[in-house]
Nucleic acid binder design. Sequence first.
DNA 1: CACTGCAACGGTACTGAGTACCGTCTAGTA
DNA 2: TACTAGACGGTACTCAGTACCGTTGCAGTG
Lengths: 228, 228
Amino acid sequence: MSKPPARIRLADAAFALFDERGYEQTTVDDIAERAGVGRTTFFRHYRSKEAVIFPDHDRLLELIRDRLATAGHSTALVAVSDAVRLVLLHYIEEGDLARRRYALTSKVAALRDREIASVARYQRLFREFIADWMGDPTASASLRAELMAASVVAAHNHVLRRWLRGESSDPVEEIDEAMREVLALFPAPSATTAAHDGGTTVVAFRTGQDLDALLPSLRRVIEGASGG
Amino acid sequence: MSKPPARIRLADAAFALFDERGYEQTTVDDIAERAGVGRTTFFRHYRSKEAVIFPDHDRLLELIRDRLATAGHSTALVAVSDAVRLVLLHYIEEGDLARRRYALTSKVAALRDREIASVARYQRLFREFIADWMGDPTASASLRAELMAASVVAAHNHVLRRWLRGESSDPVEEIDEAMREVLALFPAPSATTAAHDGGTTVVAFRTGQDLDALLPSLRRVIEGASGG
DNA sequence: CACTGCAACGGTACTGAGTACCGTCTAGTA
DNA sequence: TACTAGACGGTACTCAGTACCGTTGCAGTG
């Protein structure tokens, strides 16, 4: 019966102590002692006390980067959807561990802030990828890339949190549906550029009425947009 | 010639030292010494070494909260736009100080993370406000509130960063235009709910053609959506 | 003037995260 | 056996942040 490696024992000890005493009330010395290793060994495996909760953000970033790198111009949005699904699946595979982490980040402000900072790095990755894909350096296109990346990440967070709270039985189906909704918000980039030369603008909406009943208000919307 | 109050002297000293030696290379003792006060006094005025860079995030949060609180149901989106403009104006009034902070947050990861965490608090405020406004507790509405809040904040950040980098001469006009673009992405909430009962869906796009030329493809899109 | 209360300040001492460095033990190999 | 490399433990240090205490200065009050 050989003991599990120190890295695992440290993580187990940390989660257990955080549950028992709370995060701030647990020192690194406590964690190392329960894991049966020296304090130095803790910092050899984890850069900080916070990092023991988020072991593999770097790996996850690489995962996204790799998936996006395989995309051609016509498959860019598919790559984005795939990358988001990949991240979600990663958390789901963690199972109970992800839920314990969620319980901690919900209570401890320092951990929540760190989580948010990590998510911002994902968002940056998506934003740069989408901006490159658009290939249009104007301020307007840059804004659209920013909005799109923010929406993509928000959709992921929304589905993930639902699953973490036990409100979702099929998170993969939910993320696919959410991504469809996000992508539907944004026009194809080839069409958008033409609009700046004073074309017709059609805004997105959904209604119970049929198309013919909608035409008058459609026209009004279009004229309002081109007039303002 | 009376000296400025300690709070100001500390901020000045901190920014000066961060410029000279860098953030990590500057200790709180250094800052206090240059400001001519004791170390204790530093922590009386600023909760942490990072906080000296971001003095008034709490006040800004209150500003947003107050503006949103005055909104009625029909003026909710106006309140959101106003609140965002308020935040942007706050930074602009800081002028050079905001630009120095930007230079610091661009270099120091710890400061950038803190900035991001603060922005996330704004986003949460907007998300809760929008969700309340929608008054629809379904998962779909919750996602839409999340997407909208994320887009609102992303638009603000985009315009703010452009101004901070000196790429914008009229940031107020830019934020108004950006907010128009954001709000155009999202259908009115009364219309959205009907769509789930199998109504007509109109997707957003822009084109150089006029509306009549577009109708056939519009119909095709709608049938494709209701069929899938 | 003497007294009181209060607010801002300075100093000391402490906890705990994170870093640097050094010595030790052990497994694998020539 | 001798050598080497990696994982480990221990010590000592820096620095952020907290707790506590005493001091100073200034307002108002008798």
